[in-house]
């Protein structure tokens, strides 16, 4: 067996030295020309750690201009890159992960006690010595929010053509043959008629792809959870709005299909270990609408049951769905005017939102909870393939 000589790591202090004139090259290699695949086999968020180790060295030699310059160039390069890749989910997710990790590093190694509670003694030794970068932390946090918003916008645009078809039109239960994964984009207009051909499987596949990429990039699970929650909100809003405007989907069988689809999405969340209740609550109005389509709508007892069941839907929404409700065959009756009046009477005095349609543009505020890393900077290995051999390990 060949003996391998381990290079002594004990002298490495987890800093990276570079000449000021190499800053542009560093930014080019690490940000501008970086592709997520180039670091997929390394520790997640390697670019963020490398940048931080460079900042540490500039701090160590007490060169404030070098720290300023590196941080400004970094923020500048990330902004430009995002502008260039404004429709690219993978790139946006990758830089959200790295920006947030760089922000965590600036906190973890700030020397401020509140951020040091989980640090190892070695990590505490690695804290910044000369500079307080609190103001740059604020800039990075603002940048993170911008990147998050871009990520949500991209994901929503990609899902938009799928939602109505997958949730309301294609059905594995109703005997409608799923049409598979065809490329059409027109589900937003409510009177377009026929399905655009996306199945629930396609929508779930898309969600899986988003979630897998975020995990692979090392995005904090708390943040990817917020992305999924926002996307579920969007699925709820678009589906419910279509239901509130289209007679052809207000039927018992769509209600049954919808309920089944929502169960599948719930299963998906469970399979991905995502916070179920928190995310499912965004889709609750759609669950209630599906139940409303399925329950009996005849007696005063039915009316009372509907009123207690549909506590998130507004009176206006409940009444609208009942008015649009279309019997599937001659055995089923239309909802009578007096039944709808009963519902209106029962719901009188309920304080609620007066709007019929759900705001599809609403976004939940994003939070970036502090997530320190257990990783030790002195163990960081930089692959030769990154062409960063001008960085000196210190």
């Amino acid at each position: 067996r060949q003996a391998t000589v381990q290079r002594k790591e004990k002298d490495f202090e987890g800093m990276l030295e570079y000449h000021k004139e190499d800053e542009a090259l560093l930014i080019r290699m690490l940000i501008t020309e970086m592709k997520p695949q180039m670091v997929s086999a390394t520790v997640p968020c390697l670019p963020a750690y490398i940048l931080f180790m460079c900042i540490r060295h500039a701090d160590y030699i007490n060169d404030d201009q070098k720290v300023h310059s590196l941080l400004t160039s970094t923020i500048n390069a990330i902004k430009k890159l995002l502008k260039k890749n404004s429709e690219d989910f993978e790139m946006t997710s990758f830089w959200l992960a790295n920006t947030s990790r760089l922000l965590h590093c600036l906190k973890q190694y700030s020397g401020e006690e509140t951020f040091m509670t989980q640090n190892s003694p070695k990590q505490n030794e690695h804290c910044l010595k000369n500079f307080d970068l609190a103001e740059y932390r604020q800039v990075l946090s603002d940048l993170g929010i911008q990147i998050y918003q871009q990520l949500i916008r991209i994901a929503e645009n990609m899902m938009q053509p799928m939602i109505v078809s997958a949730m309301l039109e294609s059905g594995s239960l109703t005997g409608v043959k799923p049409l598979g994964y065809r490329n059409r984009s027109s589900s937003v207009d409510c009177d377009s008629g026929g399905p655009s051909g996306y199945t629930l499987d396609a929508l779930i596949k898309q969600l899986s792809q988003f979630h897998t990429q975020m995990s692979e990039h090392g995005l904090d699970p708390e943040i990817s959870q917020q992305v999924v929650r926002q996307l579920f909100y969007s699925i709820n809003a678009v589906s419910l709005n279509n239901l509130l405007l289209r007679k052809d989907v207000c039927s018992w069988s769509t209600g049954m299909q919808l309920r089944y689809n929502i169960t599948q999405m719930e299963e998906w969340l469970r399979g991905r270990n995502l916070h179920l209740k928190h995310i499912m609550s965004t889709i609750e109005p759609l669950i209630q609408a599906a139940q409303l389509l399925q329950v009996k709508k005849k007696t005063i007892q039915d009316a009372e049951a509907i009123c207690s069941m549909c506590n998130i839907l507004s009176t206006q929404q409940i009444v609208k769905i009942l008015n649009l409700y279309t019997p599937l065959n001659e055995f089923e009756e239309r909802v009578t005017v007096s039944f709808i009046r009963d519902i209106q009477n029962l719901l009188q005095g309920r304080t609620e939102n007066a709007q019929l349609l759900v705001d599809t543009k609403h976004t939940f505020p994003v939070l970036f909870p502090y997530t320190p890393s257990a990783l030790s900077l002195e163990t960081m290995h930089i692959p030769a393939s990154l062409n960063l051999d001008f960085l000196g390990r210190v």
Binding site: T72, D132, L133
Partner: peptide, 30 residues
């Protein structure tokens, strides 16, 4: 053991101020 020196706050422009400085304009674009 020496007490660490207090760190010097590095002033940074806000992201909005950086935008105003046209820092993020792409030189490549026309």
């Amino acid at each position: 053991r020496l007490l660490p020196r207090p760190r010097v706050l590095l002033k940074a422009p806000t992201l909005a101020e950086m935008e105003e400085m046209n820092l993020f304009e792409d030189e490549d674009s026309p």
